[in-house]
């Protein structure tokens, strides 16, 4: 599902962030991406979203070679992925419904389907009765759950998250990560960047560790 072969990444005028990284995450697998600050976790996720290009090597997602993906095909590619950010990136001037609906609207789904699927997604994260509220009236954990609803409302094949629990206390972190695990059990491929050691220990998931530009991963994930 996600496959990196000798992927190298450097930002213009900078030393290498990733050097010849190899990674294999199969369909339906869930893994944690970890490593010290500045190791390149966010960079790797941005490359998977095609927000950043690959400097060298091959990056295959869902059978799509991102190193050669044409610009006009990027939107369709992104619609097959769900992504959650640490700062959740909710639109503060839109209610929860509109925030989540955006994912479906950009794909051109008709109104009726948008209605029912957005409701279902918000139900799943436990906010089904607060459709018309605005993000500012929500707690940090609730905001993050809206971000997750937006990421999964279109039932993506891959779910990426960049430190989704960074600002949350341990209890809320457990809650959020259990949500991800729930999607994983339903067949979604999940990759979460985190440096929350408590969660890493608790979940017992494969750990991919980035350090000094190299990726340290279990044998069967290389």
């Amino acid at each position: 599902m996600i496959r990196l072969i000798n992927v190298t990444k450097h930002y213009p005028g900078r030393h290498h962030v990733l050097r010849e990284v190899n990674l294999h995450l199969r369909k339906g697998e869930m893994a944690l991406l970890t490593g010290p600050s500045g190791a390149g976790k966010s960079t790797l996720l941005k490359m998977l979203l095609r927000l950043e290009g690959v400097s060298n090597g091959t990056l295959m997602v869902n059978g799509v070679d991102l190193s050669t993906l044409k610009r006009r095909h990027i939107p369709a590619y992104r619609r097959r992925i769900g992504v959650v950010f640490q700062d959740h990136k909710l639109l503060m001037d839109r209610d929860l419904f509109s925030n989540v609906a955006l994912t479906l609207q950009v794909a051109g789904l008709p109104d009726r389907q948008v209605q029912s699927r957005v409701r279902a997604a918000l139900d799943k994260v436990g906010l089904g009765d607060r459709l018309r509220e605005y993000p500012a009236t929500l707690s940090g954990g609730e905001q993050q759950r809206v971000g997750i609803a937006r990421a999964i409302v279109h039932t993506p094949e891959i779910l990426l998250a960049d430190e989704p629990t960074g600002n949350l206390d341990p209890r809320l972190s457990n809650e959020i990560l259990d949500l991800f695990r729930d999607f994983h059990h339903h067949g979604t491929t999940v990759l979460i960047a985190t440096h929350d050691q408590g969660q890493i220990d608790r979940l017992g998931l494969p750990v991919l560790r980035l350090e000094g530009g190299r990726l340290h991963a279990p044998e069967d994930h290389q």
Partner: peptide, 16 residues
Amino acid sequence: RDEIDVASLVGATRSF
């Protein structure tokens, strides 16, 4: 700007 960025992250086309 935020709206545009988020929309493009979830797969909005340029024309959208």
